[in-house]
Each structure stands twice: as structure tokens, then as C-alpha cells.
């Protein structure tokens, strides 16, 4: 479980295994959790049963424009500065724990509304440890309950189309995002030279060691002077600009002396 999604459960959280994995075991025709675990251990990470387990064990609480203060900081300070400094160079963003896509789509909406010329060339990368969550993000289809969370009516009208009882984000924004499944604690090499790496409310689920590893990985994904965004209560050894916001030094980091 830790290898595939980095989630570490305390002894008193064992009940989560039953409540979250029980339905997955039944869905895949297994009589017990032990049988499910044996199947997952002997299957490829991309196998449907393994994807279901990762999806069930990770948290997908997400909403559009989560945390107003965070987005205000991005809109009023970080983006204007990055855009001015980039001088026409395409900006690159990585939403490294994108869940069902609300975060990268919020970013795509904001860019399109305020800086359409920047939005047209920007690269937005979106990944999550759960391939099923990534698939949902790629589809960009949200229920009424999901669009109620954080999405003002003017944005709903501008960026979504109706599909029976659900709402789909318009293809213009969908096509601007590159989606991939990615384990922050795995061995795959991640993106590099990003202007902003967003990894909010993820480290809280990790052990101290995995937290340090993930931070290092996020720093290596950023360009010098780039920004890392964490959840409001998550901290790094670097001084923060505003709750959750960190900037890397403008000189390249050359590893440990």
C-alpha cells in the first residue's frame, strides 16, 4: 500500500482498510481482504484491480478554487510576476496531486479569464497517484454536487456545457491539460523546469521521510526561482511567502556540498 500510493495508516486507522477496500474486494470477486491483497501483489500496477485499490486508499476530497486566499495570492502576485519575467516564454505548471482535476481546471480557467494569451501557450501538467482519478480529470465531467463546490455561477456558464444532469468543462480547457498517473514516491522521473508545482494537502498523509523525499522531488521539478505550493498547514524548511507558498532560489541548486 505504501509502495503504490505512499499512504501510511496508523494502527487505529485499520478500520479504513475494511471500509475502503471491502467494496473493492467484492467488486473484483474476492471473498476476503487477504485474497484481494494477494491478487494485487501479483498483478501489474496498471491492472484494473490495482488501480481500484489505489483509488480507494487515496483521498479525493477536492473542489474548484479550493482555499480563496491561496488563489488570490496566485492571481494577484505569483502569476503577474511570472508572466512579466517569462517575457513570452510559455509557462509550465504541474498539479502533482490533481485528484479529479478541479485544481488544474481552476488554473486553466483563471489563466483563460485573465491572461488568454498566456493560457494559449501555457503547459498544464496534471497527475495523480490514482489512474482512475486521472481518468475522471481527463473526462472533465462533474456532477451538480461537484460544481456547487467552489465554482461561481459566472465560471460555470463560461467554461462548462450541460450533459444531461452533469456539467462538462469545455474542450478548449480540457485540451490544454496533459494528464498522467504518477506516484510522487515512485521511481519514475517526473516533469522538470516547472514555474509552479502544486502539491497541496498531500504531505499530511505521508511519513516524515516521505515528506522530505517529496519536497526534494518537487524542488527538482521546479526551475530556479520557481514556486512550490503546499496546503496551508504544510511547511517546508524554506521561508514561505504566504501560507503554503514557497519560492526556490533563483540560482540553480547544485546538490549537497
Amino acid at each position: 500500500m505504501k509502495r503504490e500510493c505512499g499512504v501510511v495508516l496508523a494502527d487505529e486507522q485499520q478500520y479504513l482498510l475494511d471500509s475502503r477496500l471491502g467494496p473493492v474486494a467484492r467488486q473484483h470477486g474476492h471473498a476476503s481482504l487477504t485474497e484481494l491483497v494477494e491478487t494485487v501483489c501479483s498483478s501489474l500496477p496498471s491492472a484494473p484491480v490495482a488501480c481500484s485499490v489505489v483509488d480507494a486508499l487515496t483521498t479525493h476530497e477536492s473542489l474548484f478554487f479550493r482555499d480563496q486566499a491561496f488563489w488570490r495570492q496566485l492571481e494577484e502576485h505569483i502569476l503577474p510576476q511570472l508572466i512579466a519575467e517569462a517575457d513570452g516564454r510559455p509557462l509550465r505548471f504541474w498539479s502533482a496531486a490533481c485528484s479529479h482535476g478541479q485544481e488544474p481546471y481552476s488554473l486553466a480557467m483563471l489563466l483563460e479569464e485573465k491572461w488568454p494569451h498566456v493560457a494559449a501557450t501555457a503547459q498544464i501538467l496534471a497527475s495523480d497517484v490514482s489512474p482512475l482519478a486521472v481518468q475522471r480529470g481527463r473526462e472533465g465531467l462533474y456532477s451538480m454536487l461537484e460544481v456547487n463546490r467552489g465554482l461561481v455561477a459566472t465560471r460555470l456558464l463560461r467554461h462548462f456545457t450541460q450533459e444531461s444532469g452533469s456539467f462538462r468543462i469545455q474542450s478548449l480547457l480540457r485540451n490544454r491539460i496533459s494528464w498522467f498517473a504518477y506516484n510522487l514516491l515512485g521511481t519514475d522521473v517526473g516533469p522538470s523546469r516547472c514555474d509552479v508545482v502544486l502539491c497541496r494537502n498531500v504531505l499530511i498523509y505521508f511519513s516524515d521521510r516521505d515528506r522530505a523525499f517529496t519536497l526534494e522531488r518537487m524542488e527538482s521539478a521546479s526551475r530556479p526561482g520557481g514556486y512550490i505550493a503546499l496546503g496551508g498547514t504544510e511547511t517546508t524548511p524554506r521561508p514561505s511567502l504566504a501560507p503554503g507558498w514557497y519560492q526556490l532560489p533563483t540560482t540553480p541548486i547544485r546538490g549537497f556540498p
Binding site: 451538480m144 455561477a153 459566472t154 460555470l156 456558464l157 462548462f160 456545457t161 450541460q162 444532469g165 456539467f167
Partner: peptide, 10 residues
């Protein structure tokens, strides 16, 4: 839960 209603309300 329809976009037309959102538009009418705004």
C-alpha cells in the same frame, strides 16, 4: 440543475 437556469438567474 441546468445552465439555462443559471443564466436566467444571473
Amino acid at each position: 440543475a441546468v445552465l439555462d437556469s443559471v443564466e436566467t438567474a444571473l
